[in-house]
């Protein structure tokens, strides 16, 4: 790949190009919104917009940590399975102790520990991330099935439920969490040395190592963060649906990856952003929301989503080329 190995050059150079890309993507979101407003009279209402944002928040939280992993040219296929185990453990802790705080600590801690284990597999054991996290996915799923034994844990205290279904000043709580982590993510990736080092690892790991980046430690960090975000997402899900079941994380991984990729982060690493992922998550959520509002049968959903992913990335490629 012809990416720039020089960290200094990247930090000056990349954001402006990424900003242009983000602008194109915002334009696509705006066009989609205009189309939906024309097609459905309930789309452009406060309620529905808040509804879309709340659903986006969940997808974004899963995808934001994953963005960092993909920025290093890695992948985390264990996100969904991580969410399932973290949610089930957190649910048990809340049920047993009645303390939402302990539950939150359990969820995030479990997620981070799983992410840390992924990081160790990828760095110390040198297993390609795709396979390491795929193996991890199976192991976590097995543990979750064993732990839950086909049962459901439900009914959490109202304080905890606020995290998922509560409102503050008329805006759903998950939206605040989303904005908070968008800012943290943006600051971390764009404005800290560690963030820049993550971009450098993705762009060219050899050059990054030569210029003194502690590649292994940063990679472990990145996987741990991705895991912790999965843990956080699991808490939002718990708080929203008020129950945990072994299959809670099923079918969440691929949409999260899709959100990152539609958001313009490259699988080859080194280019993309957490803000882009938000746009990707928003875009995919809008598509599903639109299909529900227009009463399009859900059998169409995989087909439409597939076409949209391809279109988005293809347009992205074209605009990227015309920039260069």
């Amino acid at each position: 790949m012809s990416s720039t190995p020089n960290i200094a050059a990247r930090s000056r150079f990349a954001p402006s190009r990424d900003a242009m890309q983000a602008l194109y993507r915002l334009l696509a979101v705006a066009l989609l919104c205009i189309a939906l407003t024309a097609l459905s009279d309930v789309f452009f209402t406060t309620n529905n917009i808040l509804n879309v944002l709340r659903q986006t928040a969940l997808l974004f939280l899963m995808a934001s940590g994953l963005t960092l992993v993909i920025l290093t040219a890695g992948l985390d296929l264990s996100v969904g399975a991580n969410i399932a185990l973290s949610a089930c453990l957190a649910a048990s802790v809340i049920k047993a102790t009645g303390s939402p705080l302990l539950g939150i600590a359990t969820g995030i801690g479990c997620g981070a520990a799983i992410g840390f284990a992924n990081g160790i597999l990828v760095t110390a054991l040198r297993i390609p991330s795709f396979i390491a996290t795929y193996g991890m996915m199976w192991m976590l799923t097995g543990i979750t099935y064993y732990y839950m034994a086909g049962d459901t844990i439900h009914g959490f205290p109202p304080e905890f439920r606020q995290l998922g279904s509560g409102y503050l000043l008329g805006v759903p709580m998950p939206v605040y969490v989303m904005v908070l982590f968008l800012l943290i993510g943006w600051f971390f990736a764009q404005r800290t040395i560690w963030g820049q080092q993550i971009y450098a690892i993705g762009a060219n790991p050899v050059a990054a190592r030569l210029s003194g980046v502690p590649v292994e430690r940063r990679l472990v960090l990145v996987y741990a963060v991705s895991g912790a975000m999965a843990g956080l997402a699991s808490l939002i899900i718990l708080a929203r649906i008020n129950s945990a079941q072994g299959d809670i994380g099923e079918e969440l991984t691929l949409p999260a990856i899709a959100a990152v990729l539609v958001g313009g982060t490259s699988l080859f690493g080194g280019s993309g952003s957490v803000a882009g992922t938000l746009i990707g998550a928003l875009f995919l959520t809008l598509v599903l929301n639109g299909m529900n509002l227009l009463q399009i049968h859900s059998s169409w959903q995989p087909l439409v989503t597939g076409v949209i992913i391809l279109l988005a990335v293809w347009i992205d490629n074209r605009t990227r080329r015309s920039d260069a």
Partner: peptide, 12 residues
């Protein structure tokens, strides 16, 4: 991404 997209199309 390509095959993630075509996966959706084939499944749909």
């Amino acid at each position: 991404i390509t095959t993630l997209g075509t996966l959706g199309i084939a499944q749909g």
